[in-house]
């Protein structure tokens, strides 16, 4: 098996085993109802993690994701409740603002040669601070559009409900898989993560691609903010605190190498679902503290980092020599 596929296979196996064990204990967990909730509850995390996947594959990191989600929820609430805009218009504005924000971060990373860690850390403070300046208090959103969206869902067999936000996440993942594996942009992202110098010598437009990557991450964070806003019907500057770290965890657990160059969008989906599974298990159990989620995620993360190290050092280039006779 291709060695970059191994962490993904490991994640998938662990997810299936964990799910099987959980359903053995609580048979109720095996239903489309639970699956529907999985998708709805983790939609914003999943969408943000997709953007993070591209960033990490390219060899960078984006710490501003949670703050952009928080900023977006406040911006939408302000535009809808105070400025009286239609939510769809507010969504478009929010996506435009986050795109510009991401482009600025990408440009700073490329042209100023500053590590993405620092630039996006600054972005995190800016976005979080900006959200608090817009409104330090939580703003509830009351609009018929929100009511309509929260009432719409696709009925799955078995009575499960696939909500609009869950549907958005699934669509984002499918589009992202195509983007990563079947477009030139996708191949440039992997190229940057493999070796930026080689990529530049091979003609990859490094500046444009870097800016596009951080734009994509911020736009998806903005979309996650929209989803979070629909999900909670509120805008609050301190919402989605630390989501960037959950997203990074999901990406790494999903088999993407933190040093860049290797990874799968589909793996991130499993990583997000694994986090959702742990949360659901805790809800079903009822007696466990929700902090157990963090402990399990921490343990999984550590395990995956060790696993990747083993796979990528043990099976460093084996010398196949297959000359034509």
């Amino acid at each position: 098996m291709n060695r970059s596929l191994r962490p993904l296979a490991a994640t998938a196996t662990i997810f299936l085993l964990a799910y099987a064990a959980a359903t053995f204990q609580y048979p109720g967990m095996l239903s489309t109802r639970v699956l529907g909730n999985f998708l709805t509850d983790n939609a914003f995390l999943g969408i943000a993690a997709v953007g993070m996947t591209f960033v990490i594959i390219s060899g960078g990191i984006d710490l501003s994701v949670g703050a952009v989600i928080g900023f977006t929820t406040v911006l939408i609430a302000v535009l809808v409740m105070w400025a009286g805009l239609h939510p769809l218009v507010a969504f478009a504005v929010a996506l435009g603002v986050s795109a510009a924000f991401g482009a600025a971060m990408g440009a700073a990373i490329h042209y100023l040669k500053v590590p993405s860690f620092i630039v996006t850390l600054a972005g995190m403070f800016l976005a979080r601070g900006g959200a608090s300046v817009l409104s330090p208090d939580s703003i509830g959103i009351k609009h018929e559009f929100y009511t309509a969206v929260s009432k719409s869902y696709l009925l799955m067999p078995g009575g499960g409900r696939l909500s609009v936000v869950g549907l958005i996440m699934v669509a984002v993942f499918l589009a992202a898989i195509l983007l990563a594996h079947r477009t030139r942009f996708g191949s440039y992202v992997y190229a940057l993560g493999g070796n930026e110098t080689s990529a530049a010598l091979m003609g990859v437009p490094v500046a444009r691609t870097t800016i596009q990557i951080y734009m994509l991450s911020s736009v998806l964070a903005g979309l996650a903010g929209i989803v979070f806003s629909l999900y909670t019907s509120a805008g609050y500057s301190l919402s989605a605190l630390g989501v960037e770290l959950d997203a990074i965890a999901a990406v790494v657990i999903g088999g993407t190498l933190l040093t860049g160059g290797y990874g799968f969008v589909a793996g991130t989906f499993i990583g997000v679902m694994l986090q959702g599974l742990v949360q659901t298990y805790i809800v079903f159990d009822g007696s466990l503290s929700s902090w157990w989620t963090k402990i399990v995620i921490g343990a999984l993360l550590f395990m995956f980092i060790v696993l990747q190290r083993l796979i990528f050092t043990a099976s460093a280039p084996n010398r196949k020599v297959l000359w034509k006779a």
Partner: peptide, 13 residues
């Protein structure tokens, strides 16, 4: 790019 396929390395871009 050692992390990409031979074919992609030939035709990247």
């Amino acid at each position: 790019l050692p992390n990409r396929s031979v074919a992609e390395n030939l035709f990247l871009g």
